[in-house]
């Protein structure tokens, strides 16, 4: 019958019209920004740098300026300058740190390749998406002070992933300390251990060689034996 299809279609639209007032499955509009979206845990947008503590972000950055992410970043939006000196990281090991770490979020495409290639779990994906700015460089080219966020924040946005990372890092630290302990024991057993040990102690970062049997520091515990260098002045 001609017109049957039309009537059938009208029935469908009528059902949907009525349903959009009563049926939650058909009531799909969200009133952003009054109602903020509920982001899934996996949601990613722009990277940030993980620091161990909130009160000294520059002193406890996990990043050791290895520049792997800079090389791998497909749109080349990361810029890193290595530090000239070393300073202890959160575990007390002397490390090079990024003197400059900048991400151009106007170029970044949030692909998270940097996160995947980072061997130090130092860069992770943020969930910040409302970052519109009127100033191309001041607002969108983020420096390391703007990028650093504490591990606690990481736990807040990606709890499952962050717990896994903490567990892995703690295990790595335990293994490293075990190795250091065995090495120290072997050295103690060796006839002439004095010279290299003294040289190692003289190195600025090796002030805290892991003593045998010491407990691993908790992943989020602040460990900062030397004062951090003065942070770069914040951007205008």
């Amino acid at each position: 019958m001609l017109g049957k299809g039309l009537l059938q279609g009208l029935a469908v639209t009528a059902k949907n019209l009525v349903g959009s007032y009563h049926d939650p499955a058909r009531y799909v509009t969200q009133e952003y920004p009054e109602v903020q979206p509920k982001l899934p845990e996996a949601y990613r947008n722009f990277p940030f740098l993980v620091s161990e503590t909130a009160d000294d972000p520059m002193g406890t950055l996990r990043c050791v300026a290895c520049q792997i992410c800079e090389k791998e970043c497909p749109p080349q939006c990361i810029y890193i300058e290595k530090s000239k000196d070393k300073k202890p990281d959160a575990t007390g090991k002397a490390q090079i740190y990024p003197a400059v770490f900048a991400i151009d979020t106007a170029v970044c495409m949030s692909c998270q390749i940097c996160v995947e290639v980072c061997p130090f779990d130092a860069i992770k994906m943020d969930q910040e998406f409302a970052i519109a700015a009127t100033d191309r460089f001041g607002g969108l080219l983020l420096n390391r002070e703007q990028l650093a966020k504490p591990n606690a924040y990481y736990h807040q946005i990606h709890p499952t992933e962050a717990a896994e990372v903490d567990e892995r890092l703690a295990a790595e630290r335990r293994a490293a300390e075990e190795k250091a302990r065995l090495a120290a024991a072997a050295k103690a057993a060796a006839p002439k251990p004095a010279v290299p040990a003294a040289a190692a102690a003289a190195a600025p970062g090796a002030a805290r060689p892991a003593p045998a049997g010491s407990t691993a520091p908790a992943a989020s515990a602040p460990v900062d034996p030397v004062p951090p260098p003065a942070p770069r002045p914040p951007s205008p």
Binding site: R26, V28, P40, A42, Y43, Q112, I113
Partner: peptide, 22 residues
Amino acid sequence: FREREKILDLFESLSGSRMMCN
């Protein structure tokens, strides 16, 4: 688009992005 949104939500909760899944 109402149905598409449901699939995009699945993509987002798995890959972290609705459209640029990588």
